[in-house]
Simulated assay, not measured.
Amino acid sequence: MFVRSGTGTDLPWINSILTASYGVTTVVTGDRIRNAAELATLVAENATGPVGLLTYEAGPEGLEVVTIDTSIRRIGAGTALLSAARDLAARSGLRRVWLITTNDNLDALRFYQRRGMRIVRVHPGAVDRARLHKPAIPAAGSYGIALHDELELEFPAAVSVRPAGLGTVPAVLSLLDAATRWLVSLGRTGQWGTAPHSANPRRRAQLTSWAATGGLWLAELSGRPVGALAVGTAPDYVPAATEPELYVNLLVTDRTHRGAGLGTALLDHARVLAVGRGVERLRVDCYAGDDRALVGWYERQGFTATDPFAVALPDGTAWPGQVLTQSI
């Protein structure tokens, strides 16, 4: 099986395979209307000619697989196309390969997950909205399943998470400083202020303590630090635990790898640690000011907001926080 970029001479075949799959070449996914025949393409072919097509768009969020179709099943064309898309993304410096499919597409969901993709988001009612633009979308899809929602899948980043010893404290401080600079650039100074963490003796002592007691973990991509996690007991400014738990005391990621699933990978590691310690609850707290964007991110990770709180600051103001919990 050989995969190459599509060319102008492929256009009649591209139109035919898209029309065979979708009735027209227009597709509606993620609340976007696109003519798939006008997108960049990868074509899989064997000795008989083209047998598979992948259309894609590359942008700040990574490489999105918009459509993937084969004219002959079970000959490896789909697998070869996904592999080629990942290679293309890597060569282009894109850290995420992702796609959207519908809730009825059980065969595709099995195919994608068996090749390492994971469901990262569900978009309820997305197909209902798409139907407003493309009335031909049926009410029921494969296996007679009512067709309402979209599921977003991606290949997880090849992240390794290891215990962070005392020697990694400077690297974690650097991650925190970079995250603060990113927040400041967005005008979001309420979360961590503007001063670098590396200049704060209290933060350095905190990280040193976590590292010394085995509570600090480092995420790496190709040996480079890209995130950190600290777990242990709840701080004294949040409501006390009512049952055995593991508390996420710190979560920070390298914003240059935004969209690579680093935060999710670190939370997955926290869940594994919790199970290994025989506890069934994970708690975390986060900044709840501005538009509560960080609270929303944790909710998308499966947490439920429970207790709001406020921490008094030296200038007389209060830092708004939110505790969230998740059953393991």
Rank of each mutant, 00 (worst) to 15 (best):
T29Y: 15
G30D: 10
G30Q: 04
G30L: 02
G30Y: 03
G30T: 01
D31K: 02
D31C: 03
D31T: 06
R32E: 13
R32M: 05
R32S: 06
I33R: 15
I33N: 13
I33C: 15
I33A: 11
I33V: 15
R34D: 11
N35D: 15
N35A: 11
N35K: 04
A36E: 01
A36D: 00
A36Q: 01
A36Y: 01
A37C: 05
A37I: 07
A37K: 07
E38N: 13
E38D: 15
E38G: 10
E38F: 11
L39Q: 14
L39K: 10
L39F: 12
A40P: 00
A40I: 03
A40R: 13
T41V: 08
T41L: 04
T41M: 05
T41D: 00
L42F: 10
L42D: 07
V43K: 05
V43C: 06
V43M: 04
A44N: 01
E45V: 06
E45H: 09
E45P: 07
E45S: 12
N46E: 13
N46I: 07
A47S: 14
A47I: 06
A47V: 09
T48V: 13
T48C: 05
T48H: 10
G49N: 04
G49Y: 05
P50F: 03
P50W: 06
V51R: 09
V51W: 10
G52L: 11
G52C: 13
G52T: 08
G52I: 06
L53M: 07
L53E: 01
L53T: 01
L53P: 02
L53R: 03
L54K: 03
T55G: 06
T55D: 03
Y56A: 11
Y56G: 10
Y56Q: 04
Y56I: 08
Y56S: 08
Y56L: 13
Y56P: 09
E57S: 04
E57F: 00
E57G: 02
E57W: 00
E57D: 02
E57V: 12
A58M: 14
G59Y: 06
G59I: 05
G59F: 12
G59Q: 04
P60F: 01
P60Q: 11
P60T: 00
P60V: 11
P60A: 11
P60G: 00
P60Y: 02
E61I: 08
E61F: 13
E61Q: 15
E61V: 13
E61M: 15
E61P: 12
G62D: 09
G62V: 13
G62E: 09
G62Y: 14
L63A: 05
L63E: 06
L63P: 07
E64A: 10
E64C: 07
E64M: 10
E64D: 02
E64V: 03
V65D: 11
V65C: 14
V65H: 01
V65A: 12
V65I: 14
V66G: 01
T67S: 10
T67E: 02
T67H: 09
I68V: 11
I68Y: 00
D69S: 15
D69E: 15
D69N: 15
T70L: 00
T70G: 11
S71Q: 06
S71I: 02
I72L: 13
R73M: 08
R73A: 14
